[in-house]
Write a protein that binds this DNA or RNA. Structure first.
Lengths: 175, 175
DNA sequence: ATCGCTGTACCGTCCAGACGGTACAGTAGA
DNA sequence: TCTACTGTACCGTCTGGACGGTACAGCGAT
């Protein structure tokens, strides 16, 4: 048991995600993850027997976080659309980090990561569709959210992007 | 000079891009690039003295392709917006591949790749803004394009996405 | 209480293979 | 002869992973 409040297992996944986000999968080596979590490499391999298990652990945590996010979206006070856009721009939350990290893994041709992401996107889309009552609009809003995400992760985000999107969606009587 | 029509130098960049797109930068090793281009490792290192030079070569070619794309966008018969959306969805063209490959490199924290991408995005935005006369709309369309790209690269593209986007943009009197 | 044992939570070292890169000798075609 | 390669033989470093060892908390039987 670690002295510190957050369990070592979670700290390792945190470190893995952070490294994936900041340096891509080339930088997310087991040594780097262990060092970032302030754990020895042996310690890391105690919790996760292989790099593959580390990925699995991250995806499992993402699914839990994702289910909670969809629930929050469903009951958001300003509506699902606003909640979706707001959380599409990287706020630096744990869930954002997990999502970006998973996208990195998915790009490396990991079918588990791709399907975890696909499941989440489907759930989001179902919410958007229900709240707008319009499939085309829901799909478009989801694309805008994806665009916000992509820009953030490529480090090319325009700071006024979200307000511009809100202005345009107002003209469509959404928001 | 190779017997084959396409110069070896270009074939090497092609192979590098293809590997980046299909397996990420972890899979794009010098050995793999050389093998995919049907060139010996020595032959690769004859053209590019280091992996860094390979990246540089790819970025230089992207800039040339990018300038041509912006020009085509400016003079597109169906308008810049339609052209932009059409080319945002991965058609498998050389330019698409170059763009996705560069995004992969940019995610690995390469400032040269990021700035090459930023320059291109700025040029596209300027075109969109000029053709719509509306900054908020231009920014939103660019985000939709980014979303289309992101979905393609993550392997989660909805096949009806583009037609849905067109339907929504029609309501805004664009297209 | 204490002895023996188990499970948890690590640490530190070692290793095979992959990777980027170097060096150089050889060769087919213009 | 020069260009454009091929092929082979390396080197040093990094990486994932295996392995053995350590420390300690808890727990049932004696």
């Amino acid at each position: 048991m670690p002295v510190d409040g957050r369990p070592t297992r979670d700290r390792l996944i945190d470190a893995f995600e952070s490294l994936l986000v900041s340096s891509g999968s080339r930088g997310a080596t087991l040594d780097a993850v262990a060092a970032a979590a302030d754990v020895s490499k042996g310690g890391l391999l105690y919790h996760f027997h292989s790099k593959d298990e580390l990925v699995e652990g991250m995806l499992e945590r993402l699914r839990v976080q994702g289910a909670a996010d969809v629930e929050k979206m469903r009951t958001a006070p300003n509506g699902a659309v606003d909640f979706y856009l707001e959380t599409s721009v990287d706020s630096g939350s744990d869930f954002d980090r997990a999502l970006i990290a998973t996208a990195r893994i998915a790009q490396e041709n990991d079918p588990r990561a791709s399907s975890a992401l696909a499941d989440l996107r489907e759930a989001w889309f179902a919410e958007l569709r229900e709240h707008t009552g319009d499939e085309a609009l829901a799909r478009t809003i989801q694309l805008i959210g994806d665009g916000l995400y992509f820009d953030d992760t490529t480090g090319l985000a325009a700071d006024d992007a979200l307000s511009h999107v809100r202005a345009v969606l107002s003209r469509l009587d959404v928001l």
